[in-house]
Amino acid sequence: METNTYEDIEQALIGYKEATATWDKQEYLRQLLAYITPLIKKKIRHYFGYVDEDLLQLGYVRTIELIDNYELERNILFMGYMKRMLGCYYYDEKRKQAKVADLVEYDETFMESDYDHGYFDIELEDLLKGLSYKERYVVERHIMEKSLLKNVAKELDVSYVYAKELKRNAIKKLRVLICL
């Protein structure tokens, strides 16, 4: 297997930057892409766990942009620059794909019909029946009506600490009832 040295890559980069003829630029670019392809695949595998043609082509396009934007005068190691920039690029691509995958389509008419028929209210009422009076009061006033817990404690004529305990116990009971 042929290994490429940093000198080979640097020579191809300098040749690309200094070439005036289109044919020469294309040949140097082809060499650079061949040198950088293993790095592109490594970054894709790191962020996505697999390599596919679409991600590879996106990597080639981004690599060409990075090569064009690279400034020889800045004395930054080219391969270090490429590793960093390609890593950032694929990280952003992964985040974009995750956002798209998180979007869930739902039928709005289905959701409206459930609310209209009161199915959710019935389920909530059934869940709240499993709580004691004080636990239910804390859940209704503090969680559902967004009243401050210290005010709810005063209304129940209990300490704030006991109101917190009631809330904690109510939530535990609701979790158990929901999982059944």
Score class of each variant (00 low, 15 high):
L66K: 03
I36Q: 03
I14Q: 07
K129Q: 12
A98Q: 08
D68F: 05
Y89R: 02
Y162A: 08
R136W: 07
E145L: 14
E165V: 13
V100K: 13
N151P: 07
S159D: 10
Q11L: 13
I67Q: 02
E155W: 12
K167Y: 12
M85H: 07
K83H: 14
A21I: 07
D68W: 08
L156D: 06
K173F: 11
I122E: 08
E123I: 11
Y60P: 04
Q57D: 04
E155K: 09
R141Q: 14
F120V: 06
Y16P: 03
K172D: 10
K173R: 14
K164R: 11
E125Q: 15
R175T: 08
R74L: 07
E125T: 11
Y106P: 12
R136Q: 10
L124I: 13
L33I: 01
E7G: 06
I171Y: 06
D8N: 01
D8V: 01
K172T: 14
I40W: 03
F48D: 00
K129V: 11
I44N: 01
E53M: 14
K146N: 14
A98E: 13
E140G: 10
R84H: 14
A98H: 02
L32G: 00
D107M: 02
L56R: 03
S147G: 13
R30Y: 09
Y47E: 10
Y119M: 13
H117T: 14
Y162H: 08
L29R: 03
R175A: 06
E145K: 14
D52S: 06
R30C: 11
R45N: 14
F78V: 00
Q26Y: 05
F78N: 01
R62V: 04
I36K: 00
K164Y: 13
M1G: 07
A170W: 04
G80P: 05
L127W: 06
Y106Q: 11
T22W: 03
Q57E: 08
